[in-house]
């Protein structure tokens, strides 16, 4: 089997434009050998889910610093599920208090990286948990 290239999407749902983390991650993922689609700021969950499917990414990384994550993150997972694309892994980051973790995990978010997470730890997590070779051919 030829080697699969990992494709990821970095997305910023909601209205906050603090994209420092998202931009740093996009560069970091490129340097880790991934193909990275960046959606830019101010995206609705609908736009993010549609883009994830059109781009056939393995993973969507959501970044939100405004406190709207409790509504917006689960909504992305839900929309992917509705479109039969729940094999796309969704992870999140930003200003997310620990008390919200359980709720987000329950909604289908697979991992949460808060400020202070090293870039390596995120890349490692993706390499360990994303395995595009297993992507079943439709």
């Amino acid at each position: 089997m030829p080697e699969r290239k990992i494709r990821v999407m970095v997305a910023k749902p909601g209205l906050d434009g603090h994209d420092r983390g998202a931009r740093v991650l996009a560069r970091c993922f490129r340097d880790a050998g991934f193909e990275v689609v960046y959606t830019g700021c101010h995206q609705t969950p609908e736009q993010i889910a549609a883009a994830a499917i059109q781009e056939d990414v393995d993973l969507v990384g959501l970044s939100c610093l405004s406190g709207a994550h409790r509504i917006l993150f689960p909504r992305v997972v839900e929309l992917l599920r509705e479109k039969d694309a729940d094999d796309i892994t969704v992870i999140g980051g930003g200003i997310i208090p620990e008390q919200d973790f359980t709720m987000l995990y329950d909604s289908g978010i697979k991992a949460i990286f808060t400020p202070g997470s090293s870039l390596d730890s995120i890349v490692e997590w993706i390499k360990k948990n994303i395995n595009p070779t297993s992507a079943e051919f439709l």
Partner: peptide, 28 residues
């Protein structure tokens, strides 16, 4: 990138307003 094999696919960002339009399919 010839060095890492990675790529930032950034063109889509300017077309994101069409993301939800079923008549448009953008692939990077």
């Amino acid at each position: 990138s010839p060095f890492t094999g990675g790529a930032i696919l950034g063109d889509r960002i300017r077309m994101q307003s069409h993301a939800e339009d079923r008549g448009v399919f953008v692939r990077s």
